[in-house]
Design a binder for these strands. Structure first.
Lengths: 147, 147
DNA sequence: TGTGAAAGTCCGCAGTA
DNA sequence: TACTGCGGACTTTCACA
């Protein structure tokens, strides 16, 4: 991970669809060299994938919330992979504190959101907080100061 | 937003670097037609961007946490755009409940994390919860059932 | 909105420093 | 690890349905 790798990461985080030749112009390296570095960043797992960032509201997911789960023990959400396949569940974080994990949920309606909490109720006690707005919903990972 | 748009969204969420010709093969449409549809999805804001998904730990951000802020009033975090420019702050959500907003923070060390909470202290009262693991950290937005 | 064809560009694979 | 050069694939623009 040298400065060149970080330059490539910066560009690919801002626009994952940049061609190798455009990347090569921006970082001042030949296209094959860029391709090789990007391939290694992917292979070593630094780059986990490239995703189109979809606007939740424009995709119909107008009801967002964070759900804290109290579910220690054998019925814990974290012991059942099924929850991670529910399309409304965007993120699952195991956390410290008085709950087991926090889920980020995006539903098409209040009814659909309530339905998620109902299903979660079989694992433990869900506690919902609604997201009213998201002033910042993504930020690129910047290099440590030494680069 | 017809079934074809959703098919393109599905592919581009899974791999944002797919070429138009590869997309055209997958959705059974000519490359120019694919390019035109993708251009419109971008222009209408359904697609907000394309981002390389960087592994936080491999990028050195080993300390993750959620910070709830109690900061109602003129010094609220949400009234100052500066916080959204801090590189450690990945996400800001305004929420319902007894706090004003929840920040997702990724720091290179405990010291750096503590430093973020110190800086947040000037806006209100931060309450931190550490993220121990992230069993699910991204999920594509699926079309509503009718597609 | 969609297709098909043409021109320019890009990608991937060599061989080499 | 990086560069150059080449053949084949791709992107883009256009006319047209």
């Amino acid at each position: 991970m040298d400065a060149m790798d970080w330059a490539l990461l910066r560009e690919l985080q801002e626009d994952a669809r940049l061609s190798y030749s455009e990347l090569s112009r921006r970082v001042h390296l030949s296209p094959p060299a860029v391709a090789e570095r990007v391939r290694r960043l992917e292979e070593t797992g630094v780059i986990r994938g490239y995703h189109a960032h979809v606007d939740l509201a424009k995709a119909g997911r107008t009801v967002l919330g964070l759900i804290r789960m109290s579910c220690y023990g054998p019925t814990c959400v974290l012991r059942d992979d099924k929850v991670a396949t529910w399309p409304e569940v965007l993120e699952i974080n195991r956390v410290t504190g008085d709950t087991c994990c926090v889920l980020k949920v995006a539903a098409v309606s209040m009814e659909a959101f309530a339905d998620v909490t109902d299903r979660l109720g079989t694992y433990g006690t869900p506690s919902s907080t609604m997201i009213l707005a998201t002033p910042l919903d993504w930020q690129p990972i910047a290099p440590p100061p030494r680069f």
